[in-house]
Nucleic acid binder design. Structure first.
Lengths: 326, 326
DNA sequence: TTGTAAGCGTTATCAT
DNA sequence: ATGATAACGCTTACAA
């Protein structure tokens, strides 16, 4: 493989000048520039990026953390991020945490070992105090999730509002016995806030919530099916259910129909995200502006890498989409 | 940031020996090793990976090319690949070609500039002669797609068989007027082969195919809806349709139901892949062993990186899954 | 406008 | 078993 040295020799010019051409420095005589470019082509030269990284302390690479890329919400986020990153010459390293603290920790070391210029977190597994030390090694930007203690750029949605919007819709449709279903609340402020929105809407409408109507730890389609079984087994059944994801809503819908229930007559269902399957199934849902979030996030990240002081937080809005399940 | 030099100084031992500890060389006295480890901890030392890359000519990074990560088929593939790669200490760079030759070309340069140890192609946009030169820069492994001219490790399914299996199922169900719907055939041998399987099955059953029943360039849910409109507008309508993806089948199914058609009575539909939405919609489909493909591919790649001579091709099998649309 | 030379942090070679 | 030294390929003061 040809090096900058070979190019310099062939062109009869110093390495320095070759490097200048490579980096588009001013003050290079046109004629020499041409000669160098010619030599490069002739030798099929490409700069060795490992050497550039070492010298420039810059990788042009960003790590994106997601739980699992097969979750459509996250794959959509990543799709847009990668596209946006590529626009600015950045590459993306995909890091799947599988909802696991240790995995997340290992991937964070990419920052310390200078393998990436920055890290984007779309989900957070560890407590912030464990993540905090890494901010000294490079910028961390949070997208989708948020943490009060994390004073880093955060692009997120006000989930209180999202929870309120979905619940209010069910209430406006006339449902009075509304169940609430979400993922884990252990670590995530996101789900806690969404529930806060739910409660606010219910309180405003002076509707009571049976404690059996709170259903947690539901993330997948399969979980949605299980949630239906739990509802079916209740003596005091809800007439509508708010779910934290379209997957869960889809599983719930499938199981309900398989059991001969009519939706929304026997049970109204609202999802969250507005994924393609929501449209296919005619699922009412709360739409999140995924593309905007992804784009904003990547822009903040690139600003941060370039040392510009970014805004600490950006807040986007939801949109309600009614279909046939409410 | 502490360097190997700092560690050596603090421990009162040479850089060489520190490096030996780092790389688990034999012949390091236990006592010195302890001292070094202690110094590392004390300084919070981590090796600079850029320097290691330059010196070792090894990145521990693999690029994976997909058209778009939001396509569930590809995100599933990538999910398993990333997991498998992480097991062996490799990172994945996500490269979305967006079905674009130039994009693919740009990403291939990652190999030439030594940013990755190898490239996995799950779709191929350029002709092989344009890709071939890159094999000198590092291993290329093909997954899912295949190309007769590409003599590199290829992990794929015999799509002739897949096309045959799905079509035969429709025939066995008693359908006689079967349409065929697929993505672009321009560049991809995959879709050409699948159609070959379709034709074989039809010929064996002595069934004729109206030329209006061949529908191409369908990839997305939206495309599936359009395909339905085209079918609806035909005078000579099919009674069943073979589609090249669950997305297309899903769109078709949705549009058909929205138009008041009964499935499978008015039109039988079979998809391809067995994605989660196939189960949700009760879609019959031809299942591809995605996880096996992904795992095999990553293993072949890691072998290739380590200089082991890999098999040229690996061939896996399909499975038919009947649900309620046939 | 150009070139010389030092150095980025690591590891491999060769002595000892 | 350990250490001195020379690379790896590039960029950047500094000097000219």
């Amino acid at each position: 493989m040809a090096t900058i040295h070979d190019v310099a020799k062939l062109a009869g010019i110093s390495r320095t000048t070759v490097s200048r051409v490579l980096n588009c420095h001013p003050y290079v005589a046109e004629e020499k520039k041409r000669k160098i470019l010619k030599a490069m082509k002739q030798l099929n030269y490409v700069p060795n990026s490992s050497a550039q990284r070492l010298r420039k302390v810059k990788t042009d690479t960003i790590a994106v953390f997601v739980p699992r890329i097969t979750n459509p919400f996250f794959s959509h986020l990543v799709e847009v991020m990668e596209k946006e990153a590529a626009k600015y010459g950045y590459k993306l390293i995909l890091c799947q945490t599988h909802y696991n603290k240790e995995q997340e920790g290992k991937f964070l070391d990419l920052l310390k070992t200078k393998q990436v210029d920055g890290v984007i977190l779309t989900s957070i597994e560890n407590e912030w105090k464990h993540i905090k030390p890494y901010v000294n090694d490079g910028p961390i930007v949070i997208c989708n999730e948020y943490d009060d203690e994390a004073h880093v750029p955060s692009i997120f949605l006000n989930q209180v509002e999202g929870g309120y919007l979905g619940t209010k819709h069910l209430i406006d449709c006339g449902y009075k016995r509304i169940a609430y279903c979400a993922g884990s609340e252990r670590r995530s402020r996101l789900t806690r806030d969404r529930r806060k929105g739910f409660k606010t809407a219910m309180r405003e409408a002076e509707l009571a919530v049976d404690k059996d109507w709170y259903l947690f730890n539901a993330i997948s389609i399969e979980d949605g099916k299980n949630v239906f079984q739990r509802i079916k087994s209740l003596k005091n059944r809800p007439d509508a259910i708010f779910t934290g994801s379209d997957e869960v809503a889809a599983g719930l819908l499938k199981a309900a129909k398989d059991s001969g229930w009519r939706v929304p007559e026997d049970l109204a269902i609202i999802g969250f995200d507005n994924q393609p399957l929501a449209e296919l199934l005619g699922l009412s849902t709360v739409k999140q502006p995924i593309e905007d979030m992804a784009r904003h996030t990547m822009q903040e990240m690139i600003c941060a890498i370039n040392g510009k002081v970014p805004k600490e937080s950006t807040n986007l809005s939801f949109q309600l989409i009614q279909r046939s399940t409410t």
